[in-house]
């Protein structure tokens, strides 16, 4: 999952910059990796690739602003949805 996320970020926002140019903890906002339309693309990617529905209220930096926060967010979402089944 982490690799898929990193691949998506590097393909779409960093255009193949070297792998060490973004750490898993680095803030996308601080690093200027992503813009507001990029966030929408990122959300579309999460929904398609991991089969989740991102709610409006989840569009906050705590969930989306680094590779690590994305991994944690997806894991929380997956637990949440299987618990609900």
């Amino acid at each position: 999952m982490r690799d898929d996320i990193r691949r998506f970020i590097f393909e779409n926002f960093l255009f193949g910059e070297p792998d060490d140019s973004l750490g898993d903890k680095d803030s996308f906002l601080e690093k200027g990796v992503i813009d507001s339309t990029g966030v929408l693309e990122l959300v579309a990617f999460l929904e398609e690739s991991f089969g989740l529905k991102v709610e409006d209220a989840e569009l906050i930096p705590e969930n989306l602003d680094s590779v690590n926060s994305l991994v944690n967010f997806i894991e929380r979402k997956k637990v949440g949805s299987s618990a609900g089944q």
Partner: peptide, 12 residues
Amino acid sequence: EKTFLYPYKVID
């Protein structure tokens, strides 16, 4: 705010 990046943060 630094940018308009995470839309719900703005609403919040």
